[in-house]
């Protein structure tokens, strides 16, 4: 099992390290041919408008969309969640996404950097107690289609109740950054998803 990390911009290294600790081969992906060689993909945190622009200019956006439509497992954190959404509120007019998860995501929803925070999130399907989540100029999910599973919401503070973790088919997204905390449960959950997908694809 080889899992790629989209390496156009963002905290690529942290995801590569987290995946390596989950005992999978992890490698950066910047080009279409590199995408061909991976079984699953992580889209890291970073600046979603920059990633979108580079993905278009270096010809990886369309191949990515095809792989997502074809069932490749993808996990996106923060900017990665935005990249996976069908609709983005407060994005740039020219911003493109992979339109993988039927959801509306609001960019920078929690505010500016002075509003960035860490706090607990309960995630359905992940045991071991609340996840200590780090939100950095993070998006939230405004609304989801009926077949999107809501896995986690903010539990405390002014944004309590906001959706911050979702899954649809082989696609997983969180508004927060498990790669910054050393807690591997979200990455392990995704690796299990990817392994299960590999088995069904045969």
């Amino acid at each position: 099992m080889i899992i790629g990390v989209l390496a156009l911009q963002g905290d690529v290294r942290e995801h590569l390290n987290a995946l390596a600790e989950c005992d999978v081969v992890a490698r950066p992906v910047r080009r279409p041919e590199e995408l061909d060689s991976v079984d699953a993909l992580v889209i890291p945190g970073g600046e979603s408008t920059t990633m979108s622009k580079l993905a278009i200019e270096f010809g990886v956006l369309e191949p990515l969309r095809k792989r997502v439509a074809g069932g490749m497992p993808v996990y996106g954190s923060c900017a990665g969640m935005i990249m996976l959404a069908t609709d983005v509120v407060d994005g740039r007019p020219d911003q493109q996404t992979l339109a993988g998860i039927d959801m509306v995501v609001r960019r920078n929803a929690f505010g500016r950097q002075v509003d960035s925070f860490e706090g607990p999130v309960e995630i359905a399907g992940i045991d071991g107690g609340p996840f200590h989540a780090v939100f950095i100029r993070a998006p939230w999910v405004e609304s989801v289609a009926a077949d999107v599973e809501v896995l986690g919401r903010v539990t405390e503070g002014p944004a309590a109740g906001r959706i911050v973790a979702v899954r649809q088919r082989n696609l997983l997204a969180t508004a927060f950054h498990p790669e910054l905390t050393g807690d591997l449960r979200v990455h392990r959950f995704f690796v299990e998803m990817a392994r299960a997908a590999e088995t069904t694809e045969g």
């Binding site: 963002g10 905290d11 970073g46 860490e118 910054l180």
Partner: peptide
Amino acid sequence: NAPVTGSARVKRGMAEMLKGG
């Protein structure tokens, strides 16, 4: 359980998101 702003992790994490940019 209260959300914490301005922690070292949140501050340093912001810079992590700018990497490669």
